[in-house]
Write a protein that binds this DNA or RNA. Structure first.
Lengths: 338, 338
DNA sequence: TTGTACGCGTTATCAA
DNA sequence: TTGATAACGCGTACAA
């Protein structure tokens, strides 16, 4: 793989013109005669010359990357990508928006500071998107980069960070109200540890608010805090079963746990929605794949990924006062509630 | 966002040492006294200096990126990422392996040549992974980069490209043999257009071989070629229903269509595995989420992503004679076959 | 059209 | 042994 790389100077020499002319030809700057242009193009073809993006970036001082930071669980080899289909859809949206803006998307799995610094201390990043919980140390380092950072689904921590989330409280509220409208009054909550994330807190608040409005007392026995994973849902099924006399419906803070829950229930011969209704949150694609199809609160995840990049680009061009963005949510009725 | 960037020279000046010394400190080169080292570190902290990766890459001529090329369907705004959970798992594996090797992963959605050239004409890419079908034009351009390229699940096209795939023929063969061992003789095939991809071709060959061995004649009426998507599976359900008298089991070339198929069948009151058995291919995570859980041919997708990067790294360090890698597959029995 | 300074770290060479 | 100077990598874009 050791090749003597062809540089712009090789081209210039061979074409008997200056490097400047070659550069102009490459960049479509209208400063060269058709004749030289032709000649240069020929030589480029002949030598199979390709400009070096690194050098170009250095010279142009252009931003070309959007960094997508994904914190990795300690001692866990996989990225969070694998845990929840949410990330796949988000990433697709971000990649799409980046491409529109002539940017590329770099995925950065963060498990230790060393890796972190290797690839993103500064340079050609236009901005950074952070998915998932971030440690204080990274927070500081990110802040020191002095480039726009959007925190997805997290509380705005450091001053200049921008937060992007969905209207979690309203979504949860709508979901629970919907259950109530269907006649349910024994509504369990299944989610992650509430304190650990603003998403959970807000979804919990929505749940709380809806119940309060209807004068339904919150029953701590039917609030289950598990991992927000498929496996978490499976485990929760046992607990739901144990409290079945107190539960007619379950509001899940995330589709992926709802999916696990339904699966776990079926294994225990409890059927959805016949025996218990289940509603999710997110509207990942798999909701439709299920049987019954999952009724859920839709957030447009692809759009969220797009939005994250758009915010970064806008912020880069012209910093805005707005530092918090809340995306709308919408209830979608399918088959898991009756 | 316009900041007068702090350079290594600023640090040198303030610390009253040379830029070389600063560089040595940063890179842990043991050429500076503890005294200067200390001083330099202080100033770095004070000025909050971060080296510019672009400049560093240019100077070091180091490779820092693995490019993951994803062709995008014409006029289709989303990346292939969204279509099939397969890509999410693959990507996770690739990202993990890249991180291990101190590389970063760049996702490049390719829809037009312009975007292509913008970000990857050459430079700091150690190698390229290509997912999905690639057009001739890109093939040529890729070849001209003179860096290792691995084509995932595709025929080796250009000379120096490396191909990485799973043992599709054996997997399909095993699946069909398994169905036969369960007493099935009317085995439909559901997959993408066979001619369009080597994966399809090989899976078809496995199907063919298994049937031949058992002297079962291939019936073109029950070979369905659809989009390899959830929606494709849904549509196929209609056709399966129409031919139900000739079908007792369906071998699906991909889990995602199997999932769609099962869903479509349920909607038509045909139950799996009671009325018809279904077997998939890939073992995406969602197989387990289903009810019934999908029996399938497992390929370790995460490992495949890892392997793709490892091949690239090895090839970069020391080009190998081996240009084709075939990963093992394994049947996993669950609930969709009886 | 062209020569060349520049962007910014790295590292070989040379001096102290 | 420590540290400074300067060339280098490679395009870009301004001054001439």
């Amino acid at each position: 793989m050791v090749k003597n790389k062809i540089t712009i100077r090789d081209v210039a020499k061979k074409a008997k013109v200056s490097v400047a002319s070659v550069s102009y030809v490459i960049n479509g700057v209208d400063k060269v005669s058709d004749e030289t242009k032709q000649k240069v193009l020929e030589v480029i073809e002949e030598l199979n010359y390709r400009p070096d993006i690194t050098a170009r970036n250095l010279a142009k001082q252009e931003k070309t990357f959007i960094g997508i930071l994904m914190p990795i669980k300690e001692n866990y080899k996989k990225t969070i990508l694998t845990d929840n289909p949410f990330y796949q859809e988000f990433l697709s949206g971000a990649e799409y928006a980046a491409r529109k803006n002539n940017l590329s998307t770099i995925i950065i799995g963060i498990n230790d500071a060393a890796n972190y610094s290797k690839h993103m201390d500064t340079g050609s990043f236009l901005g950074i998107i952070v998915l998932g919980a971030i440690e204080e140390e990274f927070c500081d380092r990110l802040e020191s980069l002095d480039i726009p950072v959007v925190l997805v689904d997290q509380d705005k921590r450091c001053n200049d960070f921008i937060s992007l989330c969905s209207d979690d409280k309203k979504g949860a509220y709508d979901a629970v109200k919907y259950l109530i409208s269907k006649g349910h009054r024994q509504i369990a909550l299944l989610g992650g540890e509430i304190e650990t994330s603003s998403v959970h807190i807000n979804r919990f608040k929505g749940y709380e608010k809806a119940l309060k409005e209807e004068n339904i007392k919150i029953d701590q026995d039917i609030i289950f805090q598990m991992d927000v994973t498929y496996e978490g849902g499976i485990i929760a099924a046992e607990k739901v079963k144990d409290n079945l006399n107190k539960i007619s419906a379950v509001f899940c803070m995330s589709d992926i746990v709802a999916i696990g829950l339904i699966k776990g229930l079926i294994k225990r011969n409890i059927f959805v929605p016949k025996d218990v209704s289940v509603i999710g949150f997110d509207d990942i694609r798999h909701c439709k794949y299920l049987n019954p199809e999952l009724t859920t609160v839709k957030q447009d995840i692809f759009a969220k990924g797009e939005k994250a990049v758009d915010i970064l680009v806008d912020e880069y061009n012209k910093p805005s006062e707005v530092k918090e963005y809340v995306l709308p949510v919408e209830l979608v009725e399918r088959e898991s509630v009756r």
